[in-house]
Structure formats: C-alpha cells, structure tokens
Amino acid sequence: MKALTRRRWLLSLTTALLALALTAAWWLAGNALRPADLYTGWLLLGLLLGLAFFNARKKLPFLPLLAASTWLQIHLYAGWLACVVFALHAGLRPPGGRLELVLWLAFLIAALSGIFGLWLSRWLPPRLARSGESLVYERIPRLRHGVEAEVLALVRQAEKETQSTTLADFYLRVLAGYFARRPPLLAPLAGDDARHHRVITELAALRRFLNPRESVLADQLGELLEAKRNLDAQWAGQRLLKLWLFVHIPLTYGLLVLVGAHVWLVLHYAHRL
C-alpha cells in the first residue's frame, strides 16, 4: 500500500472513530439530561475557527506554524468532523428561526462546496495532467492568443504558397468561430470536447481537396488545434478549481459572522439548551 493511501486510510479511520465517539457522547449526554447541544455548540465553534484558520495560515507564511500541506490535511478531516458535529448540534431538519435558518443554510452550502472542492481537487488534476501540457492559469490567455496567431499565419502561408483558398475558407468558416469561443464553466465535468472533435473531423474531411503542400500545412494546423484543445481544457479545469472557492471562502466569512451572532444570542438568552 502506498504511503499516501495508508495515510488517507489512517486519517479517515481516525476521523470516523472520533465522529463515532462524539456521537455516542452526545447521545449519552442527552440521555443523562445534560446540555448536549451546548457541548456540541462549543465544539463546533472551535472546529469552525480551526477550519477558517487554514485560509489565514496561507496568508501568514512567516509564522512558524505547521506546513500548509499539513494544515490542508487538518482542514479536510476537521471539515468532515465539523459536518458530523453540525448534524448533532443543529439536526438534519431546517430550523424554524430566520437567523438560525440562514446560519444552517450557510454552513450547509459551505460544507457542500468544500466537499465539492475536495472531490474536484482529487478528480480533475489527474485528468488535466493526462490531457496535455500542464500550464499556469494566468498564462493561458496569452498562449491561446499565440496559438491563434500561429493558425492565422499558417493559413496565410498556405494561401500564399499554393494559391489555394481551401484552408483559408476553412479558417473563415470553422476555425475563426472555434478560436473565438471560450469553454463553458462546467466543461471539465462534461468530458470530451465535442466541438473540438467536430473541427478535427471536418479538417480530416477537407484533406481530399488539399494538394500535397496544403496537406503538410493541414498537419501543422491539426497540431495547433490539439494545442488549442489542451489550452481550453487546462483553462476550464483550472478556472473550476478556483471558482468553487468563490462559494466556499466568502460563505465561510459570512458564516463566522453569523456564528458570532448565534453564540451571543445563546449566551444572552439561553439558560439551558
């Protein structure tokens, strides 16, 4: 068994056992007429602050705290534990109070977005790595622009050398629109790029009308189309890997504010939960 797999199993098992123990303790406390909700509330608050500190830790690299990768592992498994404690604390049914409902939904969406992000970060990178060259997200527009320029230059070269407009017509009819298009948000989840395949198929069908020189240039064009496909896949995939954080992180900050209000209200009014 690989070390990574062993570590995952170990941490998952530890988290599961901890969750089980917490559930049992919560159940026993309820049976013993103890304020189990108060206990789980404080525990959940601690977990939330710990989870939120992961983002702060990334912004404080100078502090001699654990490595960011270690914090990530803590964040992942503490997140699972927080979901269990949340279920014990708030239940699985939406609460009746307005602020409580907003708080409940905020946690739920933050947790689900985190789970989605975790799955995405496990599932997508291997596929991106298989699809072609790994690229820096911020450079992709420039690279795409370069590929597009190369394609245009190639078409002009074909027209100039062969006095034929077959490839030029193909560019105008198909490629110009293809290069202008950006992949949709969830394209990485949809699988293969059908539009790319259609363009490649049309290029293959065009070859019977090409002379030998044009065929050579068409081969180069095919390589550029493949580069464009890889760029699109890398861009869409990396964009998705960043966009889920648009839900997770802002909602976490909002959640912390709501949790603060919730704690204040509880301490202000409650006498026994």
Binding site: G96, G97, L99, V102, P250, L258, L265
Partner: peptide, 29 residues
C-alpha cells in the same frame, strides 16, 4: 465577494439584534 458576504451577514445580525423585527429574526424557532 467575501467582503460583500460579510456585509450581508452583518446586516442580518444587526437586523436580528437591533432591528425592529429583531424578535422574529433572533427567535430560534
């Protein structure tokens, strides 16, 4: 977006603690 969310949450909290409808908002159910 995070800032906007925090502002929204703070608005809700103000509504729940000091707003005219605070009892409706702060009631847990």
């Amino acid at each position: 977006l995070a800032g906007l969310t925090v502002c929204l949450a703070l608005g809700l909290v103000l509504l729940a603690v000091w707003g005219r409808t605070r009892e409706a908002w702060s009631s847990p159910g």
